[in-house]
């Protein structure tokens, strides 16, 4: 009995330590956002300082973090919605119809999932330079609509949930194929689309190298590029302002995560088992 108790204590102590390690950087960041550079240089305290507004003003003189937020939101939301819809459409095509070359095409796409996007980075840049879409959101949004990973997942899901008899019934009722997709298949796929949306959103929100390469104007920067830019700019001398920039870009995500964390975590679990 006492041995069991000891093990439990050890596990709890370990867990508390790991939690502290996970949480401490967040706490440090928020506290330091309220202190001025001189204070920060003096060392860390657990109590907030009084320079919050001043730090905020200094940071806003250099970069408009809210604008970065807006850009990131526009890109991520559009990518999530569009890739959800078009991936569902593609998955439906793969799951429901038999056509020549379906199997080889699908296997080819599976193999291509292993190829990192970076391989085409140079060619991707040249392509966008050629069609004149550099320094716009188009290279961030449009290519991301075609996501083989999401198609793969949705096709597997559809194959196990959509019964052919449902389609036949709809066809007998005289519904067109596109209408069948919208009224029969899409509602069935919605839970899986929602799951994939989380992956897509996180992926798009955190995408760094593509926006770094294709965006030039600071007012178009997404949050990750903006933060990298901030780090290399003069404002990096002002530690308090740096901290507040980081804090602002983190806190909304943290709040959203606290609301949805259970759903997100269970979705990812479901995703890994199904996929």
């Amino acid at each position: 009995m006492s041995k069991k108790l000891n093990i439990k204590t050890v596990v709890y102590v370990f867990l508390i330590l790991v939690t502290l390690v996970s949480a401490l950087p967040f706490y440090m960041m928020i506290i330091n956002a309220t202190r001025d550079t001189k204070d920060i240089l003096m060392g860390f305290t657990f109590l907030p300082g009084s320079a919050l507004l001043e730090n905020y003003r200094t940071m806003m003189e250099y970069v408009n973090i809210w604008n970065g937020f807006k850009n990131s939101l526009i890109v991520s939301v559009l990518v999530t919605v569009l890739s959800g819809y078009f991936s569902a459409l593609t998955a439906f095509g793969f799951a429901v119809y038999n056509f020549k070359g379906k199997q080889p095409l699908f296997i080819f796409m599976l193999l291509m999932m292993m190829v990192p996007g970076q391989l085409g980075l140079i060619g991707f840049y040249e392509l966008n330079r050629f069609i004149g879409t550099l320094d716009t959101f188009i290279p961030l949004i449009v290519p991301a609509i075609a996501s083989p990973f999401v198609v793969f997942f949705l096709r597997q899901y559809l194959a196990s949930t959509l019964h052919p008899s449902l389609l036949e019934a709809a066809r007998i009722d005289g519904a067109g194929e596109l209408k069948i997709f919208h009224t029969v298949a899409l509602p069935i796929m919605m839970p899986a689309v929602a799951t994939m949306s989380i992956f897509t959103f996180i992926g798009s929100w955190n995408n760094y190298i593509v926006p770094l390469v294709v965006l030039f104007s600071p007012e178009k920067f997404t949050v990750p590029v903006l933060m990298g830019f901030l780090k290399g700019s003069q404002v990096a001398q002002n530690l308090g302002s740096m901290y507040i920039g980081i804090a602002i870009s983190v806190v909304p995500i943290m709040v959203a995560f606290l609301f949805f964390s259970k759903y997100i975590i269970s979705s990812i679990s479901a995703g890994s088992i199904k996929g």
Binding site: F86, S87, L89, T90, F92, G93, F94, V96, Y97, N98, F99, K102, M109, M112, V115, G117, L119, G120, L121, I122, G123, F124, E126, L127, P139, V142, P143, I145, A146, P148, V151, E177, F181
Partner: peptide
């Protein structure tokens, strides 16, 4: 034909923005 109609938007973007840059590279 119907199947390809469903796959078309995806395939267009996939070939244009994924495959083409890799081959071009």
């Amino acid at each position: 034909a119907i199947a390809w109609a469903f796959l078309f938007p995806f395939m267009l973007l996939y070939v244009w923005f994924m495959l083409y840059p890799i081959i071009q590279g």
